[in-house]
Design a protein around this nucleic acid. Structure first.
Lengths: 130, 130
DNA sequence: CTTGACCTTGCCCCTGGGGGAAGGCCCATT
DNA sequence: AATGGGCCTTCCCCCAGGGGCAAGGTCAAG
């Protein structure tokens, strides 16, 4: 099948598929006589795997490692778990970072009257030396 | 003062200062006879303002709008509040997105034995059609 | 006068693709 | 047989926010 159908079936955009090929996350697809990329059902399964992993926030190198482990019958679940736990920690860190931003910003927003006067707690908070 | 001192005092890297100038977030600094950028105390205050706004996660265009409002004596606090609340919503959205990732990934990690066998709930979860 | 610390511009790199241009291919309809 | 539109191809620019490095200019102290 051609890239459009592979895209529709896998949920990965055409653009992303070509990008994944360019960064060698997936193998270069075979070509038809017309020069079109040609995909098999198996290729689509790999794309779906990648799509789900990306959806969980794994970066391209991380997804690459996951795909390699998936294909490797000699893997250990410990290897996979280590990778996933490291990613989970990154997620937790980002959540904490965003919550810290929210916790800093929220009180400023609450104290800003939001009326027609120029006085604003948000600008004051940003301007003042802490 | 030159860029190095302005950087030290404001907490914004030399590189970032030049970058902010190139994207017109700040005005182009004056130059000494030797061609070095020259900063005043006021410039440093603006950089500190920017640094704090960036620390709260505001994007460059958002920071630009905040700086403009800060300088504008005819602003209304409603304008500032609107901008801040929109950003706050973006933060909340990102937090929710990351929490959803965590909530999907965590049960898989918990069910992965992490031993020397290849069977792994994480890979199974990514591979299976949902 | 030399040395080292600072400054300058400029270029390529990163993430993860999106958007769009210019041109080639294929199928169905007229 | 021709044509139209819907695919496909490669190529390049764009986003944030700089990092890193190169080649060279400047300045103050010893």
């Amino acid at each position: 099948m051609k890239i459009g159908e592979a895209s529709d079936q896998s949920g990965v955009s055409r653009k992303a598929i070509r990008y994944y090929e360019s960064v060698k996350l997936i193998e270069a697809a075979g070509r038809t006589t017309a020069g079109y990329r040609d995909y098999s059902e198996k290729d689509v399964e790999i794309l779906k795997f990648i799509s789900r992993a990306r959806g969980l926030g794994f970066s391209i190198p991380e997804v690459s490692a996951l795909v390699d482990l998936w294909k490797d019958q000699n893997r250990t679940s410990a290897q996979v778990k280590e990778l996933a736990m490291a990613h989970l920690q990154q997620i937790e860190n980002k959540i904490a970072e965003l919550q810290a931003m929210r916790d800093s910003l929220l009180p400023l927003v609450d104290r800003c009257p939001g009326d027609n006067n120029p006085d604003c707690a948000i600008l004051n908070g940003l301007a003042q030396r802490k």
